[in-house]
Design a protein around this nucleic acid. Structure first.
Length: 472
RNA sequence: GCUCCUAUCGUCUAGAGGCCUAGGACGGGGCCCUCUCAAGGCCUAAACCCGGGUUCGAAUCCCGGUAGGAGCGCCA
């Protein structure tokens, strides 16, 4: 049996972090078992679904590299099929028409709640042997309800939570088709999962309570049940539920914060899943090792600090060529022109040790790609002394005479210069930094000068000397 | 209210009855290294929600509390 999993978001907003994790679990599980993964857009709520949201979901999934093995599927394009199944069920007697109005239903629920009962449909239009149904009112388009079994139990064998038992008497007859004929969520999911041969339904655990009804519908259809895995949700750092109003961010915002997609995936997969003490996983390792036996059933908080740490580990260990395109994106984003500086891979190599995010990397590297606008005030005040000006001037002369502009040659020149003066390297390296970077933070000074290049280094040293002199 | 789920350091987690004096990681504190920022190395503080049971033995199994959460739509 080929494993087929799916991610089925409703397009009412961007792809958020919790959705991304469920998508990841589904994707990775399929890959792990040599199966397929599909993306299905659940857009039957035409009021709330938007094309922007659809685009945002695709964009997020694409950036994360969670690609579908099929063309995208929209539920709104499958209405004929749903209608067909509704007819089948009506004919088979596993579904029936209900003429109760919304007002009637609201009143029923209100009364039940007043009596401290669980609000549910009372079955007034449910056909039963020997029962006389009311006469359908004029001009009312009935909804279609599923005829849920009255007794017995439904056992949900959840891969994460274990067996969960529901009594059928807790379940009511849910609506599967609205008065206007548009089918509802619980029904579409079932038909889709059935038609598409989904073997493993992996979704948020807010769906646990829907599952017994879905299982009953599946059984009424004579389908074999898929396996279920209900993933707990992700909480904010404060332990509160993530919502649009409270800290929920779209996946693309993590890109803007400077995350590499695989790093975000790595952080996400460890949120809930574990493999012994291992923290870092390449994509391939995730595919090879992921399993539901080690997925936690309890909700987890999103810890930005740890996410940054994971991102940093990625930046430090992966091939700079993989980082380069994202780095390029970030440089442009802050107005720097990647073409106006050294090879990005070389910059990444030097900067990645000190940058947890690509935002930081871009900020700390922009001096290589644009003209220096100003010196950091504190750093200049500390390192731009009269003595420094003399040293910088002399060093600049030495550097301009250098036969080749390489890191080893620069290392030799700067260290030799400091030694010759009987100074610690810091005495000269720091003023140089401020002069060429604009601040006292950069890669090792030889690497910094090498990346900057001869022409710009000498120009910036001269400019710094002039600045210092004009001040004194 | 009813049904369902969950519960180990601040956070993510390891843990499948003895291997637990509860391990790892992030973050915190300290020391070392050092041209800056980092990185790295070493050390350190920090947890089994509570109460009963089962057992020779329980973080692990059972029951009951408590606390958090989800669901109870002609939303998904």
């Amino acid at each position: 049996m080929t494993v087929i999993t799916r991610f089925a978001p409703s397009p009412t907003g961007f792809l958020h972090i919790g959705g991304a994790r469920t998508a990841l679990f589904s994707f990775v599980y399929a890959k792990r078992h040599g199966g397929k993964f599909l993306l299905r857009i659940e857009d039957t709520d035409r009021e709330r679904s938007t094309q922007e949201a659809v685009d945002a979901i695709f964009e997020g999934m694409k950036w994360l590299g969670l690609n579908s093995d099929f063309d995208e599927i929209y539920q709104t394009k499958r209405f004929d099929r749903y209608a067909e199944v509704v007819q089948q069920m009506l004919a088979a007697g596993t579904a029936y028409h209900c003429y109760a109005s919304k007002e009637e239903l609201d009143q029923m629920r209100a009364e039940q709640q007043a009596r401290k009962e669980k609000p549910r449909y009372d079955g007034r239009w449910r056909p039963e042997a020997g029962k006389v149904l009311p006469t359908p009112p004029e001009g009312v388009k009935p909804v279609v309800r599923f005829k849920n079994p009255v007794d017995g139990q439904v056992v949900l064998k959840d891969l994460i939570k274990g067996d969960i038992v529901f009594d059928n008497k807790e379940l009511d007859d849910l609506i599967i088709a609205r008065g206007d004929g548009v089918p509802t969520y619980n029904f579409c999911v079932v038909v889709d999962d059935y038609d598409m041969g989904i073997t493993h339904v992996i979704r948020g655990d807010d769906h646990v309570n829907n599952t017994p009804r879905q299982i009953n519908i599946l059984q009424a259809l004579g389908a074999t049940l898929p396996a279920y895995a209900h993933v707990s949700m992700i909480l904010g750092a404060d332990g509160a539920k993530l919502s649009k109003r409270h800290g929920a961010l779209g996946v693309m915002e993590y890109r803007a914060m400077g995350f590499m997609p695989d790093a975000l995936l790595n952080y996400l997969i460890r949120l809930g899943w574990s493999h012994g003490d291992q923290e870092l996983f390449t994509r391939e390792e995730m595919f090879a090792k992921f399993d539901f036996d080690h997925v936690s059933a309890s909700p987890a908080r999103f810890d930005m600090e740890k996410a940054y740490w994971v991102n940093h580990q990625y930046l430090k260990s992966i091939d700079p060529a993989i980082v380069a395109p994202e780095f390029d994106w970030h440089l442009r984003r802050i107005g720097a022109d990647p073409a106006k500086g050294p090879d990005l891979k070389a910059v990444i190599e030097q900067q990645r040790e000190r940058c947890r995010t690509l935002v930081e990397m871009a900020e700390k590297s922009k001096f290589l790609f644009e003209d220096l606008e100003a010196y950091n005030e504190k750093d200049a005040a500390k390192h731009f002394t009269a003595d420094a000006a003399v040293l910088l001037e002399e060093l600049a002369a030495n550097l301009s005479a250098l036969p080749e502009w390489t890191a080893p040659a620069l290392h030799e020149a700067v260290n030799g210069f400091a030694e010759g003066k009987g100074l610690g390297l810091g005495k000269i390296a720091q003023p140089i930094r401020v002069a060429v970077v604009g601040m006292a933070i950069s890669p090792p000074i030889d690497q910094t000068l090498f990346l900057l290049g001869r022409e710009r280094t000498l120009a910036r040293l001269a400019a710094a000397v002039a600045t210092i002199k004009s001040k004194n």
